[in-house]
Design a protein around this nucleic acid. Structure first.
Lengths: 340, 340
DNA sequence: TGGCTTTGTGTATACGCTTACTTAATCCTA
DNA sequence: TAGGATTAAGTAAGCGTATACACAAAGCCA
């Protein structure tokens, strides 16, 4: 059917193994033979069959991506494309391809990962999120399969290479910033509580609140999905309070978009009536009106480093796990102002 | 190392072929044996090796995605994540995985595709764009490799299954809409001219202009990259004209964002001074201020149908090529108004 | 009861490549 | 110039699965 190593060998009048060695650029093959074989390859338009190679080799030159929900949900948040951009950059440099499993429910995703791993479809995995007691992460550890995590693993963080922002510190500083603007009633709009990033930021928020001697009120803490709808829900809850917050720390820009649109509908002005400080600084966060004041967590770099770390894991398996902390930076735009 | 079919065979006290048949659910195996083998598989935690399977099978259960530029550029435009969402949905339904090649230059991308195809890394390919005289498309046709195209193939459209909007009609109708609002100087901000979508929309625009008896002016036509920066460039050019347009038909929302931001910098008000009608209706297009009036081209469905078509190509190779036209719809928001 | 089909399972080979082991040829060195 | 060292290429055995073919057992009918 397609051209194989044997065809090339026949044409070049050498053994198949020699062709294989030419492909691998084995130094034990003379320049002359190499040239001869290469000519034959070109002439026939030979390309190695990847499956055969992987099988013989036990390597696939592909890395798997695991998202918290199925791609079709996750891609609603620009965070993921952006992380993948970073991953893709490294992958390309090292000639790895990206492999995305699909699946809707948690079970399906888990099964997809098992297939990736057991089926040796990929050489390693980047987890694009970190969740409390995550089955997949446990499984990968059990299997000793190379993987890295974006975010802080809930357990065994020392033994898992992961790439993270210092979310605790970020949230603390941002809350302090809001406090410095005179806000005393600060709401926290978090994502799902089983995501470690939510927890870390919530703790940072709490720390700042307590440090400042402000009351830490449960009703100011709301958790919703990482989507626009989540933001909309959150606002409704918070504004229904008898003493609604004067500032909101929102864990994700897309949620902030939702917050913004709902506030707009309700006729609440940002930042005059309520300030908004958001996280992620997604590509489009400057577009909303008012444009979002947001913490740039350097999503691209998170992905880039995660892929880089993964390739290190793959290439030098006994290298100790490491933690890479990607710096963050507040980008001030229009949604924060001091209390009047 | 990992559990193979042989291990299962040994434990279940049958031949490896029997195990293989159990996996394939071959009716010639007795229920009793099936049960016995399945127990052994469960006990050992057996999972088929995908590479071995693919090799024996000549199928990979993976579909390849080809983007116009490398993932790390393409993902800057929400169009691509959204298409992939659609693709991913079908892929998941049929247990296919997605495979993304990486590469920066055109050559690298081409090489990536060749490797995907020759290396049998995927069973078929979805081209996420359509370009004039595209090398990759030619190659795939030559190789008779299953693929579908999002957009209209420049050549041989009849013999290639493709999913498209009626871009000609869309652009024509939209231009007519602007004309109906009283605009007579309408600019066209296109993407790269070697993209078929640009051409089609430009032709539709021209048709409407000529039908209305308006002058078709070259200086009103600008082509830039499908990015924010492209939109910014475009505006600068158009506003430098002695008689700048009073309305702009912009081929992509992200470009529109650029247009908007530049107009804002220049103190030009939208829609009072200039109207903007955009394409794609990307998820965030309602967020800009003013929010974009944009043509919803149903990106998700483009992806969904493309994947569906591809799987048909793969499963029934001699099925004739088809063209799927995805409907569009104007979503009116705040960037269009009638001429004062 | 012999010969025929049907049913269930095993044997052996192929898929295309890698690589440990072997062999053949060439080159030194004493 | 014999014998060891070096270099270059070939042989063959996998990698884990699928499947054409072979074969044995069982069932059927005359």
């Amino acid at each position: 059917m397609s051209v194989t190593i044997k065809d090339v060998a026949k044409l070049a009048d050498v053994a198949p193994s020699t062709v294989s060695r030419v492909i691998a650029n084995n130094p034990r093959i003379s320049e002359k033979t190499k040239r001869k074989v290469k000519e034959a390859m070109d002439y026939l338009g030979y390309h190695p069959n990847f499956n055969a190679r992987s099988l013989a080799n036990r390597s696939t030159q592909a890395i798997g991506l695991v998202m918290p929900s199925s791609a079709d949900k996750a891609f609603q948040n620009p965070f993921f494309p952006e992380v993948i951009r970073g991953i893709s950059t490294i992958a390309h440099e090292q000639e790895y391809a990206l492999y995305m499993s699909t699946g809707n429910t948690e079970d399906e995703i888990f099964e997809g990962v098992v297939r990736m791993v057991q089926g040796r479809r990929v050489d390693g995995i980047v987890m694009l999120y970190s969740r409390v007691d995550d089955r997949i992460m446990c499984y990968l550890q059990e299997q000793k399969f190379p993987f890295t995590v974006i975010g802080k693993p809930f357990k065994n963080a020392e033994s898992i290479t992961h790439i993270d922002n210092d979310n605790f510190k970020a949230a603390q500083e941002m809350t302090e910033y809001l406090i410095s603007l005179g806000h005393e009633r600060i709401g926290f709009v978090g994502g799902n509580l089983n995501l470690v990033v939510t927890i870390d930021r919530l703790l940072g928020y709490e720390k700042a609140i307590r440090n400042a001697g402000l009351p830490y009120k449960d009703e100011y803490i709301v958790h919703e999905e990482f989507l626009k709808e989540g933001g909309q829900e959150a606002v409704k809850e918070l504004l229904a309070l008898k003493e609604p917050p004067s500032a909101l720390l929102v864990i994700d820009d897309v949620m902030s978009f939702g917050v913004l649109s709902t506030l707009n509908e309700l006729g609440v002005s940002v930042p005059d009536d309520i300030s908004l400080l958001s996280f992620n600084n997604v590509m489009l966060s400057e577009l909303s009106s008012p444009s979002l004041t947001s913490v740039d967590i350097n999503i691209f770099k998170l992905g880039y480093e995660a892929a880089k770390g993964l390739l290190e894991c793959i290439n030098t398996p006994d290298k100790p796990a490491k933690r890479v902390v990607v710096p963050f930076e507040l980008v001030k735009r229009q949604t924060c102002s001091s209390v009047k």
